[in-house]
Design a binder for these strands. Structure first.
Lengths: 131, 131
DNA sequence: TCAAAAACCTATTGACTTGATAGGCAATTG
DNA sequence: CAATTGCCTATCAAGTCAATAGGTTTTTGA
């Protein structure tokens, strides 16, 4: 299940895409429009900054702005940056200790196929597709 | 992410499909073969019984057996029975209070599409496909 | 016949994740 | 220079996950 982190991240990106006119948008405005606590959005937008998807401008008159055009973002990169890798099952996680049953496991191929299927879906969608 | 409940449920079903020769298979055997605690499997198989996917036979010589042929089960029905509905996002859950933003939400259509995409995947796979 | 073997039932638990809230510091500008 | 805004760390309550534990009932097969 996709958590609020990923969902809100996408809404932030969309809000920026729809309202930015070359100038930075303060988080307060986004919070009001999206009806989400500004404090919570701060946590989420931090990851977007760290990941290089948006840039923050401090000080009065500051705010956030996209780094690229909306059509140059995929939904996948936004989502996976906020949610983490979103592996279908624990066996496929980065840090997972290699399962000794992997060779003979009847279900592992299914999870691998599903994992790719999901990633294909989100990487094929662009931010601009949602506007 | 798919939890152990759903994954183990599928492995139980597969084990039954591969080892049942008309007679019931005791959970102890499945637990040994699958290297999963029998006690934990009890919890999981209970849902499968309640959902009518397998039948349990009490008493000495008892165990569990499939109710249908492996090709007549979809992976989806096994998984969603164990995991619950697996809605992509909270907004789409059964019991979710209707979101007042639903009408104008830019992201809801994406989640709906994804939800269907995932369900299509699992409902199109048969248990026999994994054997 | 009766004891072993099996399903079935209820409760509990520790670790982790989720969805926030709170308070304050740093940077920038009108 | 004060208002505005981003940025940082910490904390928290509630819920979920992955089991474990101990007992009761049912049925067979020796």
């Amino acid at each position: 299940m996709i958590s609020t982190k990923g969902r809100y991240a996408l809404r932030i990106m969309l809000d920026l895409a729809e309202h930015s006119a070359e100038k930075a948008i303060p988080l307060k405005d986004i919070a009001q429009r999206q009806e989400i606590s500004k404090k919570y959005l701060e946590i989420i937008v931090k990851d977007l900054v760290k990941g290089g998807l948006v840039k923050g401008v401090s000080g009065k008159g500051g705010g956030y702005a996209l780094c690229r055009k909306p059509e140059d973002y995929t939904v996948g990169e936004i989502l996976f940056l906020s949610e983490g890798p979103m592996n279908a099952v624990a066996c496929l996680a980065e840090n997972a200790e290699k399962c000794p049953r992997a060779e003979k496991c009847r279900t592992l191929p299914l999870w691998k196929e599903y994992d790719k299927y999901v990633k294909d879906f989100f990487y094929s969608k662009k931010l601009s597709d949602l506007m």
